[in-house]
Write a protein that binds this DNA or RNA. Structure first.
Lengths: 198, 198
DNA sequence: TATTTTATTGAGCGCCGCTCAATACCGTGT
DNA sequence: ACACGGTATTGAGCGGCGCTCAATAAAATA
């Protein structure tokens, strides 16, 4: 067998990525398998490993795509010019995570192996979401506290993230339910108020 | 082969659990394997699967042991009657997680499979830590806010957890470092202050 | 001692990630 | 039209995984 005319290299890469993304959404990180992706796109394992040279790199690319979706969803909702933009950020976090739980969890279930750290382009991509949050936080803070916006944004993302993880993995349910999203928003509001936010 | 006199059933169970715990600490969740545990204790895979009837149940038991260690470490530090008990709780969270990162992360990396949910005894065990936090929160809140202590405790655990995860998995480092533990403590303080805490 | 009960084994099954010699195909030069 | 060089693709093979279960060895009992 040799070069097949039905797909260029880029098309094939995209095909695999798309199918991989679908599979991840369907079965979740623990049951994801590169072999299964290969089977579904109708190419052999070897071909797949030629393009993405390890399982780790394939998953990285898939998670990256998830990140893009996430950021896009967030941007779209902010573009509707809502009144309470902070609430929209929190809701966007929870909503995306729960509507795409397998994809979302995969981002955090995937441990990057010992040696390698993630390539620059992914790094930048992941900064995007935090960047959006940072911009919104800055808007809300008084002039003199603006320089703290970045650090505060990261901390608030962590705060919301914590609530969201517990909500999705059932840790909250296990301890007696009170609405995690509302709690997260309350914590965020308190932090912003403490920083002099309006 | 048949019953071996060198270990009673309970002893063997304990032996496997201890060795499994060691292995988890050593290699972490993704590289943990029941086969390897069997090899290390010098019994065959079959025996191991007789006692813990699936990989999932073995890991559950291992994680449970980690939880006990964690709660014990927390209790010990609180028993020294520190001045700032809230800070000790936060520090205890971060310290345990970073000093036992493989064990700690395993707790959250292990997805319990579709059907089964974790047995009552584990459920209770995991409530213990949150219970300790709840007690400390209650002490700090004014009389009229005591009834909110439980809900607030869960939310604050989630808050600290979020910061801790990001600290350990490098999500923070990736975004420009500011001390996650201090940020977590700041968020907790703000929330307590907002609830009228002293 | 003979028989039942019980603990232990490990080869076997179907998966996994990953490799690499063999192979099928394409573009090009003559 | 044909041969050739390069490239894309293959899939059997390797070692390892979780898990099962008929066979077996040892203890308990009769």
């Amino acid at each position: 067998m040799g070069r097949r005319s039905d797909h260029s290299r880029e098309e094939l890469e995209e095909l695999i990525l798309a199918e991989g993304h679908r599979l991840m959404a369907e079965v979740g990180y623990p049951r994801f398998s590169a072999r299964e992706v290969a089977k579904r796109v109708g190419y052999s394992v070897g071909t797949l490993y030629n393009l993405f040279d390890s399982n780790h790199r394939l998953i990285l690319a898939i998670n990256s795509r998830t990140f893009l979706m996430w950021a896009a969803a967030m941007a779209e909702r902010l573009a509707e010019d809502p009144e309470d933009r902070i609430a929209v950020l929190v809701d966007g976090y929870f909503r995306f995570a729960s509507e795409n739980s397998n994809l979302w969890m995969a981002i955090y279930e995937h441990r990057t192996p010992e040696g390698s750290d993630l390539p620059e382009r992914y790094r930048k991509q992941r900064g995007e979401l935090t960047g959006m949050v940072e911009a919104e936080i800055a808007k809300v803070l008084p002039e003199e506290a603006r320089n703290k916006a970045a650090a505060l944004a990261r901390s608030l993302v962590a705060t919301v993230h914590g609530h969201c993880v517990f909500a999705l993995t059932g840790t909250f349910a296990l301890l007696g339910e009170d609405r995690p999203q509302e709690a997260a928003l309350a914590r965020v509001r308190e932090a912003l108020a403490a920083a002099g936010g309006r």
